[in-house]
Nucleic acid binder design. Structure first.
Lengths: 241, 241
DNA sequence: GGTCTAGTCAAACACTGTTCGATGGTTGGT
DNA sequence: ACCAACCATCGAACAGTGTTTGACTAGACC
């Protein structure tokens, strides 16, 4: 037998197993968790299969055994994050406040993970967490006495409305950073304000007049206006007829 | 001089200029128009610089001289399409209907170009057409007597609301086709309905109960509910105080 | 021991947006 | 007529992407 101390000749090109093998096998859950961590830290454009692989100390190809595709992974990520939204148990007397509370919770989650809304586009959330949220929201609407049809339409509209708001709110980002710092954001807002103010007033009387309002418009206030209008309108519609 | 009739010997490997040169030079406008045509025909995922180049009978690198980057191109595409939305001249007596009309027009454009909302994400539309639409919408709101602050907040919310609705409506597409045919869409809806109906009723009483409503929920009706609620709510808020 | 299978992964494929440098046509100046 | 400058085009290359293939290995079962 050959002495194991003697290294094999270099031209034999034995596979290098130094970095291989030792692996408590990666699990689907670990992949999803690592993906969310990477997304939170570095934003949507930083998530690639290779990058995620090395984050887990694994090869990119290994991931496919567990999640099938990047699209499949994002489905899992989406449902995982939907699990973070809180929906209260229905109380018929307070259904309007409860609806607003779920909307606020949904917005909070979308702000905590600014890539979320972008990921959700084109996906119909049907994972276990999504089902839970949907069921809970419908329960609140029905507790409010809405008709079956209006409950469903209202539920769908609520999601669209909150998503439409947050997709805008979290839209200008992801040049790498998950969310640009407030000062940078303020600078962008100021530039926009200055540009608007510099337009020819005879052609854009309203914009130039309202340039200051654009700069100071508060997203929190705006969101509250939105859900006020929406929930009120829904209640009014339910009460009519 | 060499007789131009005699072809050069093949080993000389002169550059092949057969497909080169003859080009009434491509213009920025022509590029944008071709991009929109390609997007309308084959959807967002079909738009690549190489593909767009050959669509114009040009090389991909040539496009960069005119539009700078793909992102820059999409900015131009966005503003061009925003130019398709119609906003009426303000009439104080009819400002609520007029607001709804612009919302409907915006939706129509987004349905005619299903990739539009996706393109608009992360972009602040500031092209000439966007300015025109913004100015016109603000004019209507101010004609309605809204305060400066509420006018701006209302304008921003209107856009978010309509976009949120249409991003959902046009979301499930672009596997290549710009919009899947209605039958396919109905099949997806039916599958979702069946799946919802098959859930355990004790855990999801409301979803199973309302499964039918999900399948039959009409987007047109839903959109009308949405703008009804929104415009009404905005008017009520303007009247209060 | 042997066989089987679940899991890992390097390498390759076909794409993507973008940059570089070479090339040519056109224009204006002399 | 010549020559330089400029505008515009584009092949080739670069770095990156998602995904597939096929070889491989470690552990479990018989």
């Amino acid at each position: 037998m050959a002495d194991p101390e003697i290294p094999p000749p270099p031209w034999q090109r034995l596979p290098d197993r130094s970095s291989r093998k030792r692996r408590e096998p990666i699990s689907r859950d670990a992949i999803v968790a690592a993906a969310i961590g990477l997304l939170d830290r570095e934003g949507l454009s930083a998530l690639s299969m290779r990058r995620l692989g090395e984050e887990l100390g694994a090869g990119a190809a290994s991931l496919y055994w567990h999640v099938g595709s990047k699209d499949g992974l994002l489905d899992l990520v989406l449902d995982e994050l939907i699990g973070e939204v809180e929906v209260p148990d229905p109380d018929p007397a307070r259904w309007q406040q409860q609806l607003k509370e779920t909307a606020r919770s949904q917005r909070r989650v979308s702000l905590r993970h600014p890539y979320l809304v972008r990921v959700s586009i084109g996906r119909i959330p049907m994972g276990p967490n999504a089902l839970r949220v949907t069921e809970g929201t419908l329960a609140i609407l029905r507790a409010g006495g809405l008709s079956p049809r209006l409950a469903v339409q209202g539920y769908l509209l609520l999601i669209d409305t909150v998503n439409g708001f947050t997709v805008d709110e979290t839209g200008v980002e992801d040049g790498g950073a998950p969310q640009l710092p407030p000062e940078e954001l303020q600078k962008v807002a100021d530039m926009a304000r200055d540009y608007i103010a510099s337009l020819p007033p005879e052609q854009f009387p309203n914009m130039t007049d309202l340039a200051g309002e654009f700069a100071f418009s508060d997203p929190d206030e705006r969101f509250e206006i939105l859900i006020d209008i929406f929930v009120d309108g829904l209640a009014r519609r339910a009460a009519a007829r």
